[in-house]
Write a protein that binds this DNA or RNA. Structure first.
Lengths: 126, 126
DNA sequence: CAGAATCCGTTACGATACTG
DNA sequence: CAGTATCGTAACGGATTCTG
């Protein structure tokens, strides 16, 4: 008799597809970095390029459009000469920052555990 | 005179590359869904396939290996017949769940703003 | 059941060059 | 300065088949 698939307890958020859809908010190369760079306030296109070294103008431009379309950032053209454009997190976009923080925190601790787990491998209770 | 690139205020976490590295924790298709599915406890391979409908065995298997290697989940082979394998979040892996929750929360509210922003477009203070 | 192996299509990224 | 256009490539995921 085949094993029974246990019911998945705790399913307040309905389908897993919802999750996928929401994760798309920060999808695409460098999107998290853009949010990260804007955490302290507005920033211009070329400043973002400097903040995120290996990003190309094409990809940065694309990512910013997507983030704007999704309501994560706002775009404001300044009447300077030459013209410059400022990007800023929306109120909701700013709420993504703590989430990124949490992920980074876990990442750092995982790395620490890794490197010290090597040295002193097994301390297991019998 | 060209505009000066303003210093990026607030830079406690050093390079943006660190962020990229940490975001890799939840990278790959369905990885967030796996973490999500394991939030309430251990789950078998085939149960995860049911939890996350469109995932193929190949990709699920690959994602689980990666997550295990990164210390996000643990893998335990049960001595049953036929053999089954249980996956479970590690302590650190479990800390990713609130972060995913936050992102989902923002995602839902962004969607709400979107759909009601259509109907009643402009209410701006002079 | 849990998964490895193979093949193959899509895509998204990077590099480069060009525009307003 | 702030992008857009075009091109080539590598990586990723999906479908299918096979094994212990």
């Amino acid at each position: 008799m085949p094993l029974k698939v246990r019911k998945n307890r705790a399913e307040p958020p309905p389908q897993p597809c919802r999750l996928t859809e929401c994760m798309a908010l920060i999808a695409g190369a460098w999107a998290p970095n853009v949010i990260w760079s804007l955490r302290a306030g507005a920033r211009r296109f070329s400043e973002l390029r400097v903040d995120i070294p290996p990003v190309t103008a094409k990809v940065l431009s694309r990512r910013l459009s997507e983030l704007e379309e999704r309501g994560v950032v706002t775009r404001r053209v300044l009447a300077t000469s030459p013209p410059s454009v400022e990007y800023e997190l929306t109120a909701l976009g700013a709420e993504l920052v703590p989430a990124l923080d949490a992920i980074v925190s876990v990442g750092h601790r995982l790395k620490a555990v890794r490197s010290q787990g090597r040295r002193q491998a097994k301390t297991r209770p019998p």
